[in-house]
């Protein structure tokens, strides 16, 4: 065998390099997978302790209105009704998404169809800056500007669902806007030119063609925003009032799942019912984020534009 034949049949430095590369990158991905699995496992195992160890009924937990895990009610049952927080969390999330969506779609249309140049130059940085502002700063401004303003208008403390909604509206606005821009950009240009060529006005094109073609992706954009709002903790905690009461209107103090968690997890003792009950709230958050995730996937799969 000549030298070249030998080389062709023997492993070289390059073969070893590839083994090393595979080991490194496979290890990294394995670490991430292990991490996700252990997050799901630990939060779930903690979260179900309320039901398995403390024997609280799931139904009572989801529908009860009294949250006072440290004390027993008249009939000897622990008072762990999470309904007020569940209702408040959903209220602020849905209201914030409802308010933010028209603004987000307007921003997206402005950037894709009305004035793409100005949009790219001025609006893009505006959106990026809004994304960049940390949630505690939103919370702080909510606390020093929004809450006093509501107090001035409606009396009371000023904290509550309305304040939470306003803060979350500004926070999810950039998320929904930038995804809405992607959604509209994904609509092929010939959809637009075809509609315009048929004599439709720009608004007719937008309304009848663009928004309809982009609808599934616009919906996922809104759900992304809702997922962010639902999981937001500190900004909401600073303006919601943190009283575990069923919300009766938009301007009285109440509490979301996240605000209750951040306020109290450090004040309870591991393994006790008050602590377990909080982990159950965390489990609800986790499950909801999975639900949002599934929704996004489901809609995304159904709405791919085929071209």
């Amino acid at each position: 065998m000549d030298e070249i034949q030998k080389k062709l049949n023997a492993p070289s430095k390059a073969s070893r390099e590839d083994v090393i590369g595979r080991i490194i990158s496979y290890t990294c991905i394995a670490v991430i997978i292990a991490l996700v699995v252990s997050i799901l496992y630990f939060i779930t195992s903690r979260g179900i302790a309320t039901f398995t160890t403390n024997h609280v009924s799931l139904w009572q937990f989801l529908t009860g209105k009294q949250w006072n895990p440290g004390t027993l009610s008249a009939n000897g049952q622990p008072q762990v009704g999470a309904l007020p927080m569940i209702v408040t969390s959903f209220s602020v999330t849905i209201l914030a998404a409802l308010v933010a969506t028209p603004f987000a779609i307007a921003v997206a249309l402005f950037m894709t169809d009305i004035a793409p140049k100005t949009g790219a130059k001025f609006l893009q940085p505006v959106i990026e800056l809004l994304v960049g502002i940390p949630s505690v700063v939103y919370g702080f401004i909510g606390l020093t500007v929004v809450v006093p303003f509501i107090r001035h208008l409606f009396g009371g403390t000023g904290s509550g669902i309305l304040a939470g909604t306003i803060v979350l509206f500004v926070m999810v606005l950039p998320t929904i806007s930038s995804l809405a821009v992607d959604a509209l950009r994904a609509v092929p240009t010939y959809f637009r030119s075809a509609s315009l060529a048929l004599g439709a006005t720009r608004f007719q094109t937008i309304y009848k063609v663009l928004l309809r073609a982009a609808m599934p992706r616009l919906l996922t954009a809104v759900i992304f925003g809702m997922a962010r709002a639902f999981g937001e903790a500190l900004a909401v905690q600073m303006v919601i009032g943190n009283a575990v009461l069923m919300p009766h209107n938009l301007v009285t103090p109440t509490s979301t799942l996240t605000s209750q968690l951040t306020t109290n997890i450090g004040n309870t003792i591991m393994g006790t019912l008050p602590n377990n009950a909080l982990w159950s709230l965390a489990l609800i958050l986790l499950l909801m984020s999975l639900v949002f995730n599934l929704l996004i996937r489901y809609i995304g799969k159904r709405g791919e534009i085929k071209s």
Binding site: I4, Q5, L8, N9, A10, P11, S12, A14, S15
Partner: peptide
């Protein structure tokens, strides 16, 4: 077949093949 070797064999060092 290259230099008396079947370089399509999975045992052959593919990096050396591409060098040549």
């Amino acid at each position: 077949r290259y230099r008396g070797t079947n370089i399509n064999s999975p045992k052959v060092n593919v990096y050396e093949v591409r060098k040549h």
